[in-house]
Design a binder for these strands. Structure first.
Lengths: 203, 203
DNA sequence: ATTTGACTAATTAATTTAAAAAGTCAGAAA
DNA sequence: TTTCTGACTTTTTAAATTAATTAGTCAAAT
């Protein structure tokens, strides 16, 4: 890893700390520079602007998010349990990075930025693919009945995203994430996934 | 019906028209009065304040909403079809009264108003009850397997609300409701309900 | 090649001012 | 007596102005 890359890594790390604690909007470039005992101008030597920095951090978090989910599904031999584990990972990430408001609407990120959009779209694509793949595996093993795997995968994702957003929305009075909120999301998601899986089982 | 009641009805009707077209915030008491060729002060003879008027309108809409859903379920002999019809009714109301933003977050209504809260809570209670009742009927008929009906009813509602809010959220760039958005909600809801029902079927 | 202090430009926040809407009331009309 | 209204006050909301902060630049230094 080159020296430039190392420095970039340090900056990303420092930015991530601030972003995940205070949110993107409440983090200034000067603060990140100060944390690294360097100057703001120096940051601009490594990143063209704040948006690029934010995008790098978001990309790092989100690809971890997606990869962990993929791994959990790939290593699961129990269809229902695999999807429940998926819920746990999703909630864990949501709790950890809540302040960044990546997923929900009140985002600090400019969600219409084409670079951000294409990042999100790519990850959604990948997510749809590995959930489809997961279902396909269990269709082939005979546990799940024959169906349109992609459509079904999309339905599962829709449900999880839906419960997620609805729950955050309803308990929105509290600006900060509380464990109770995320526990609620976990419980509801797992409950729905359970029924859902029964509906996919070969009868 | 007394003369006072009649006048109140007229006011509610006029208010509903404006509210559902322009939203609550963009409707003034003077405009409602003008529509009825009367004076603003006159409105205040029949309603103590704007909030009371809004609450009356909301109550009228929402109880219709709930009652139509209840009727559809009560008259359904096909478990899955009944729930799909429920989706259709929900989407229809959403489309009709979208501008009032009753359900979603960006509400023109002060959602923390205790009177509004108790109205909502009461209706949610009722909704949970008749969905539970619906499931119970099909458990007893043997079509649905034995399960905690209330928990299951809540899961169905969570899913429908979730898809609803998530979809509005994602396509939020368009300030106004478009048919495509609500078609999307309908399709996704029905798709999920279908799988869900299979999961509840006695095997 | 990398860093920096001192700079400008663009955003955001705070303050003030003006406009609009909510809400009141004494007295008129039915 | 019940219902209605114009003229009024109070409260909210919107627009305009100003001040402060932050993003982003650059010539000079390391």
């Amino acid at each position: 890893m080159s020296l430039v890359d190392q420095k970039q890594e340090q900056i990303l790390e420092a930015a991530l700390k601030r972003f995940s604690h205070f949110g993107i909007a409440k983090t200034t470039m000067t603060e990140i520079a100060d944390d690294l005992s360097t100057s703001k101008a120096s940051l601009y030597y490594y990143f063209p602007d704040k948006t690029a920095l934010v995008l790098c951090v978001a990309e790092s978090i989100l690809s971890d998010f997606i990869n962990e989910q993929q791994q959990v599904l790939e290593n699961s031999e129990d269809f229902k349990q695999g999807l429940k584990d998926l819920c746990v990972i999703r909630v864990g990430f949501g709790y950890k990075y809540f302040m960044m408001h990546i997923g929900d609407g009140q985002s600090d990120i400019n969600t219409s930025d084409p670079k951000f959009r294409s990042l999100i779209d790519g990850l959604k694509q990948k997510e749809l693919e590995f959930v489809s793949q997961y279902i396909k595996r269990f269709v082939e093993s005979g546990w799940v009945k024959k169906l349109d795997v992609q459509e079904t995968a999309q339905a599962i994702i829709d449900v999880l995203v839906g419960i997620w957003i609805a729950e955050i929305h309803v308990h929105n009075k509290s600006l900060f994430p509380c464990e109770r909120l995320f526990d609620g999301i976990k419980v509801k998601s797992e409950r729905v996934i359970s029924i859902f899986c029964d509906g996919l089982k070969r009868s």
